[in-house]
């Protein structure tokens, strides 16, 4: 059941004509052997060079979607093309273009960092290139650890080793399944910078995350998945504009003891010190009610010193989108 308002459907945006789709997902479905329907009818074009974030609660189907594209899971329906190559019939060509950083950390414990990266490069059929591997390890702050066994590394370092491995063959598309899970704030910043550098190198990035600020910070577009359905895909800014609630903060000349009765039917909140009023409004509504509010304030003789607006975080946007319909909760 969809929580989405009617007119918003997933689909290509108007920019599609001018951009090339490096990944074309058509009508993809997956039902696991256990009977779980993890994906139903997902279609999506991913453009070359963009960063797209997939958002969704636990069990939404994000990892399943990534796993199918990368070749870990066989779909029950639909097709995927990567760089024009069908992942089922032209899998060698398709997989050469892809790097995957899985959600779960999995590393050979008794292998050194640099050998782990060299090994992956070999698997992709590439000859040795230690100069490039050095660059990758340096950019991930792993060069000093190159001769350490992977089991001696911290969780955040291990995740960066996985990224280094995924980059070892210069993929055009990089999948990051929850890249900052279990990574501290400073490291998370560092990770964002790494992603930013990759974007400048022209790598297409598909990431999943539970940190909504991360999607907002990094992604050009955001796709929202729930119950195996792609609810929508929108440029990050559009999504914010379309769904974002804004808060108007009105600073007052004179503090108020309480909200005047005449204004009590409006959704106003008075700050503790009585010096400002907060008014939340929906940018999508025909009338925001701001003009009326300001008019009413003037008529009441309440003097306004300053006004400012703040956009609500993506987290709030997200909660609005995936909120279950009431009846399902009570049923």
């Amino acid at each position: 059941m969809r929580a989405m308002p009617g007119p918003i459907t997933p689909g290509p945006s108007e920019k599609d004509d001018t951009m090339t789709a490096i990944i074309r997902i058509e009508n993809l479905s997956k039902q696991y052997g256990s009977g779980t329907k993890a994906l139903s009818g997902v279609s999506l074009d991913i453009h070359e060079g963009e960063i797209i974030a997939l958002l969704g609660p636990n069990g939404a189907g994000k990892t399943t979607l990534i796993s199918i594209i990368c070749g870990l899971v066989v779909p029950t329906g639909g097709t995927v093309r990567v760089g024009g190559h069908d992942i089922a019939t032209q899998w060698r060509a398709a997989r050469k273009l892809i790097g995957l950083v899985p959600q779960e950390i999995a590393l050979e414990p008794f292998e050194t960092v640099i050998n782990a990266v060299r090994f992956t490069r070999g698997l992709y059929g590439e000859g040795p290139d230690d100069a490039y591997i050095e660059r990758v390890l340096r950019s991930l702050a792993l060069w000093d650890k190159r001769d350490a066994m992977t089991r001696e590394l911290s969780g955040g370092m291990k995740r960066r080793v996985l990224i280094a491995k995924a980059l070892s063959h210069r993929p055009k598309v990089l999948f990051l399944d929850e890249p900052t899970a279990g990574v501290d704030v400073a490291l998370r910043r560092e990770m964002w910078e790494v992603v930013d550098q990759l974007r400048r190198d022209g790598v297409t990035i598909i990431l999943t995350t539970h940190y909504l600020e991360e999607a907002e910070e990094m992604a050009d577009r955001i796709g929202v998945i729930n119950h195996g359905e792609l609810l929508l895909v929108r440029p990050t800014a559009d999504l914010m504009g379309e769904f974002g609630k804004k808060t108007l903060t009105i600073e007052l000349m004179e503090p108020l003891a309480a909200i005047p009765d005449a204004l009590s039917d409006r959704a106003l909140r008075l700050s503790d010190d009585g010096r400002s009023l907060a008014y939340e409004y929906d940018t999508r509504a025909d009338r925001t009610g701001i003009a009326h509010l300001l008019g009413d304030l003037a008529r009441k003789g309440i003097m306004v010193r300053d006004v400012s607006t703040r956009q609500s975080s993506l987290e709030e946007v997200f909660m609005t989108l995936v909120a279950e319909p009431r009846q399902e909760v009570t049923a």
């Binding site: 997989r95 698997l123 059929g125 491995k165």
Partner: peptide, 10 residues
Amino acid sequence: GTIYEYLVSP
């Protein structure tokens, strides 16, 4: 879990 590498590479 490192089997994933063999399954996603060419």
